[in-house]
């Protein structure tokens, strides 16, 4: 009981809020995967799952872990690992998205549909 009172409650609220945001974003991202009918549109839904769905909740879990004093010294390990993982996801997730988009467009596997214009290869439009 004392440990709960001593921990800064604001950090717990921020950490929990970021985790809830992550859960919501992951759900919306999954719904988007089913509702969008084209490969390129699904990439945008996947981006929601990688930034609000994993970077933000990882930062949230780091903030939350610092306040949990029952973990002892291991809370710094949990927090540090979360921060480093968030940073790695932040710089590598777009590299993956870009590689997928570039590969699919070069191999002409998926058409851009619906389509206003395709400046890179007009044949793939529509």
């Amino acid at each position: 009981m004392i440990s709960v009172l001593e921990t800064p409650i604001i950090l717990r609220v921020i950490g929990s809020a970021l985790l809830c945001l992550g859960a919501f974003a992951a759900l919306v991202s999954a719904i988007g995967f089913h509702r969008f009918k084209n490969f390129y549109l699904r990439l945008h839904a996947a981006t929601i799952g990688s930034i609000w769905g994993s970077v933000y909740p990882l930062v949230g879990s780091a903030i939350l872990a610092i306040t949990v004093e029952e973990l002892g010294v291991y809370r710094w390990f949990v927090a540090g690992a979360s921060i480093v993982a968030a940073f790695i996801v932040l710089i590598l997730a777009p590299a993956g998205s870009h590689a997928l988009a570039r590969g699919v467009h070069k191999a002409k596997v998926a058409r851009v549909k619906p389509c206003i214009a395709d400046k890179l290869d007009p044949e793939l439009c529509g």
Partner: peptide, 26 residues
């Protein structure tokens, strides 16, 4: 910037008609 973009795409996903207007631009 992240909040603005996320809210925009989440609206498109949850909208009944999923309004999109996509293009590959240069």
């Amino acid at each position: 910037y992240e909040t603005k973009a996320h809210v925009d795409v989440i609206k498109r996903i949850l909208h009944p008609k999923t309004p999109v207007n996509p293009a590959i631009i240069e």
